[in-house]
């Protein structure tokens, strides 16, 4: 179960109603269900790395823009700025944490039918026709 702080970080990563084409946010795409199954079934190294990445997003990323953690204290623009600083940080391990955060979010978001349709990905039955 995700804490409200973790949810704030993930919501800032892929927000709802923030883009004219990709209108759905991460939680609209079913991340709660995805995360529950991820915690049950993902390989331990993936699970623990994602947990560490979430921790960095909540507690470390604000420090990178000179703000106090947790990330949930910040406004929307600063949350994005903080996460942006994490994924582009010069120190490789922090940058990797940012990459893992994005990769796991993308596992869920990229499988979302509505988001796939929005970028023109064909539905399975289209191919069979």
């Amino acid at each position: 179960m995700l804490s409200s702080r973790q949810r704030a970080a993930l919501d800032a990563l892929l927000p709802s109603d923030a883009h004219p084409v990709l209108t759905r946010g991460l939680f609209d795409a079913g991340f709660d269900e995805f995360h529950a199954s991820f915690e049950r079934e993902a390989h331990p190294s993936l699970r623990w790395t994602f947990r560490a990445a979430l921790w960095c997003a909540v507690w470390v990323s604000p420090l990178l823009i000179g703000a106090l953690p947790p990330v949930s204290r910040l406004g929307r623009d600063d949350r994005e700025r903080a996460l942006g600083a994490l994924v582009s940080h010069p120190w490789y391990p922090l940058r990797q944490m940012g990459f893992v955060l994005k990769a796991v979010a993308a596992f869920c978001y990229g499988a979302d039918r509505a988001s796939r349709r929005a970028v023109g990905y064909p539905r399975q039955h289209d191919e069979a026709e």
Partner: peptide, 15 residues
């Protein structure tokens, strides 16, 4: 899409 999305730059609205 999952793997393309993960590789695209940015976070939040930019992503």
């Amino acid at each position: 899409p999952e793997m393309i999305f993960a590789r695209m730059p940015g976070v939040g609205r930019r992503w």
